[in-house]
Amino acid sequence: MSDHTTPEPDAPGIETPGKKNRPTPKRKEQEAARRRPVIADSKTARRDQREKQRLQREKEFQAMREGDERNMPLEHRGPERRWLRDYVDARTSPGEFLLPLSIVFVIASLAIPGNSVAGLLLIAIFYMLVLAVAIDTWLMIRRMKKRFVAKFGATKLPRAWTFYVIARALNIRRFRAPKPRVARGEYPV
């Protein structure tokens, strides 16, 4: 006989391929194995989460001030968004003067009685300014879309780009974020 004997397949302690080789765990044991605390300490977890979010916002804000596109929020990244920002920053639009002028109009309307001719004239001038800004913004969007499609193609238009452009055009140039990279009159190619 040879020294090498084949053990019986059903012998205890011998693993057989295709079999489980262990007893079925009880339901109670399975549930206990899956159970774990959702949050170990909710107060510290919330504090840590808030701290992470604060650091991330601070990093993004710093990137917006410096123009570091890699760390900007997602809605400001990419060559398409950069082109849109540069186009808006290159032009002088009446929209950027709307907010300061509206404050002047509010102060002037408080000083002038509303039912006088001067008060009515002030209100008419303000409405004409708002109308001029609306027309200028509409024309800017049309021109910008033509040039954008010529450069990048119609499929590259970023999501919600019109709102992005309008919000930037109505903001005072000094307070725009990300900070303008081009001087007035330097339109993107």
Rank of each mutant, 00 (worst) to 15 (best):
R147W: 09
L131M: 10
A45Y: 09
I166F: 03
A167L: 13
L131V: 13
V104C: 06
A154L: 04
A63Q: 06
T137R: 00
R168C: 00
L110T: 15
F126I: 03
L139N: 14
T162H: 11
N71L: 10
M64E: 14
P73Q: 03
W161E: 06
A154W: 00
I112W: 05
M128I: 14
E96I: 05
R47H: 11
S116K: 08
G119V: 08
Q53Y: 07
N115T: 12
R168F: 03
G114M: 09
S109R: 15
E66I: 07
W138P: 04
A124H: 01
D48T: 07
R47G: 04
A90K: 02
A45M: 02
S102N: 13
A124S: 11
A63W: 03
L122I: 04
A177V: 10
K52A: 15
R147H: 14
G153W: 08
L84A: 01
T92F: 05
F163L: 13
N71R: 12
R181T: 15
Y187W: 08
E96W: 02
F61Q: 09
F163Y: 08
I166P: 00
V117W: 11
F163D: 11
R176L: 00
Q49R: 15
V117Y: 08
R77H: 04
A154Q: 13
M144H: 04
K179W: 00
T155V: 12
A134C: 07
L101E: 12
A167K: 15
F61W: 12
M140N: 04
S109D: 11
F163T: 15
F152I: 06
I112R: 04
K52Q: 07
